[in-house]
Simulated assay, not measured.
Amino acid sequence: MTETPEPTPETPETPDTRDTPAAHLDLLYSEAEEDLRAAVRSLLADRAEPQTVLARIEGEAPYLPGLWGALAGGIGAAGLLVPEKLGGQGASHREAAVVLEELGRAVTPAPYLTSAVVATETLLALGADDGPVAELLGVLAAGEKTAVLAVPLSTAPGADPVTEGPVPAVADAAAADVLLVPRADGLYAVPAAEARIIPQVPLDLTRPLAVVDTTGAVGVRLAGPETGGAAVRRGLLAGAGLLASEQLGLATWCLEETVRHTRERHQFNRPVGSFQALKHRMAQLWLELVGARAAARAAADALATGAPDTELTVAVAQAYCAKVAVHAAEECVQLHGGIGMTWEHPAHLALKRAKSAQTALGSTGRHQDAIAALVDLPAPR
């Protein structure tokens, strides 16, 4: 007689952790994001190819005619962060990050970071569904106007700037229609035509700087000092987080262009890219680029989802991506040899943008200090 085996206890099921905050992190690009990338890249290839940019930066204004209208209004990139009820696309920081990757890749002179990200996020943080804030968001989303936060480009997230008198190094002020001015009694929207804007000579000619003086200009008061200060800090945080994506795009172009050049350039009847020493340098850069992509995507996703560790994720992205962009641009110039040092080759545009962005919205050291404070780790002395 065959004995019936005793039932064995079932193996407990693995807990479903898909609803935990950590599982929400998604570093991959969606199909919609890739479609947006293709549209922006096609537009830039048609209207902002390197020789066109090089020709423009020798003049007074580097901005390419018609480009902002096509990018902001035609593709709808300016309204990606703005809800549909206010006239925007109702997308997120992830999509805006893809646009900045492509703009960084082409080192495009366009006020996207300053207007469509920093200024727009500042206005969104005020939480108004009607009135002057909503009206301004509508025209910004449509690409009809641009706005710039009137603080120095080097201002880091967490800062509480109050502008009184002339403010130096305001990025893209020359292209702004509206200036968002944080004052002691609140945040104001001031028409750029009522301010004194004095151009400065920047390192990066594709991102113009200017001294902005709104003394005597009244403007429209959008919020009080507490609400306005919090909104400015939110705008700076979003700007720093998505600047990492611009740096990622720039570094990606530098590596791809360097690989292409070293395949085509021959010495001793061999491609210079086949030399082991150069292979190692490009392989190291590729590894750094992988890390930069993960850091930049994590920052964009954290901003999009409102993750509780957003400040930390943004600080990590900036502390890492800024260094990678500079290293990639330096290698691009060096591995191109003599041609990389010429004005005709766009490598110098990438290097100047990388060095300028390294101190934009907080220096690397400032972000490292922020990381130490956020994780309660004493900074090195």
Score class of each variant (00 low, 15 high):
Glu3Arg: 14
Glu10Ala: 14
Pro12Asn: 10
Thr14Phe: 11
Thr14His: 09
Thr14Glu: 14
Pro15Met: 06
Pro15Ala: 07
Leu27Ile: 13
Leu27Pro: 05
Glu33Arg: 12
Glu33Tyr: 06
Arg41Met: 11
Ser42Trp: 07
Leu44Tyr: 04
Glu49Ile: 09
Thr52Asn: 07
Tyr63Arg: 12
Ala72Leu: 04
Ala77Ile: 08
Ala78Arg: 13
Leu80Gln: 10
Ala91Gln: 15
Ala91Val: 08
Arg94Ala: 01
Ala96Val: 02
Ala97Thr: 10
Glu101Pro: 12
Val107His: 03
Pro109Arg: 00
Ala110Arg: 10
Ala110Leu: 15
Pro111Asp: 10
Thr114Asp: 15
Val117Met: 12
Val118Trp: 02
Glu121Trp: 10
Thr122Asn: 03
Leu123Arg: 01
Leu124Phe: 13
Ala128Phe: 02
Gly131Thr: 01
Gly131Tyr: 05
Gly131Cys: 04
Leu137Tyr: 12
Pro152Val: 12
Ala156Lys: 01
Gly158Trp: 02
Val162Met: 04
Val170Gln: 08
Val170Pro: 11
Val170Met: 09
Ala175Asn: 07
Val181Asp: 05
Ala184Asn: 01
Gly186Asn: 04
Gly186Val: 06
Ile198Val: 15
Pro199Lys: 10
Pro199Val: 07
Pro202Asp: 03
Leu203Cys: 02
Leu205Val: 10
Thr206Cys: 08
Arg207Trp: 00
Ala210Val: 07
Val211His: 10
Thr215Val: 14
Gly216Thr: 00
Gly219Phe: 08
Val220Met: 03
Ala223Thr: 05
Ala223Arg: 05
Gly224Asp: 07
Pro225Arg: 09
Gly228Arg: 07
Ala231His: 04
Val232His: 03
Val232Asp: 02
Leu237Pro: 10
Ala238Trp: 03
Ala238Ser: 07
Gly241Met: 03
Ala244Tyr: 00
Leu248His: 14
Ala251Cys: 08
Cys254Ile: 02
Leu255Ala: 05
Val259Ala: 09
Arg263Asp: 09
His266Trp: 13
Phe268Ala: 14
Asn269Val: 12
Val272Arg: 05
Ser274Glu: 15
Phe275Thr: 08
Ala277Pro: 03
Lys279Phe: 09
Arg281Val: 15
Trp286Gln: 13
Glu288Asp: 15
Gly291Cys: 13
Gly291Glu: 13
Ala292Trp: 00
Ala292Arg: 01
Arg293Thr: 10
Ala300Gln: 00
Thr305Tyr: 15
Gly306Arg: 09
Asp309Pro: 14
Glu311Leu: 02
Thr313Met: 11
Val314Trp: 02
Val316Phe: 12
Ala317Cys: 01
Ala322Tyr: 02
Lys323Phe: 02
Ala329Arg: 03
Val333His: 07
His336Gly: 08
Glu344Pro: 09
Lys355Asn: 12
Thr359Trp: 01
Gly365Tyr: 01
Gln368Asn: 10
Ala370Asp: 01
Ala373Ser: 10
Pro378Gln: 15
Ala379Lys: 14
Arg381His: 14
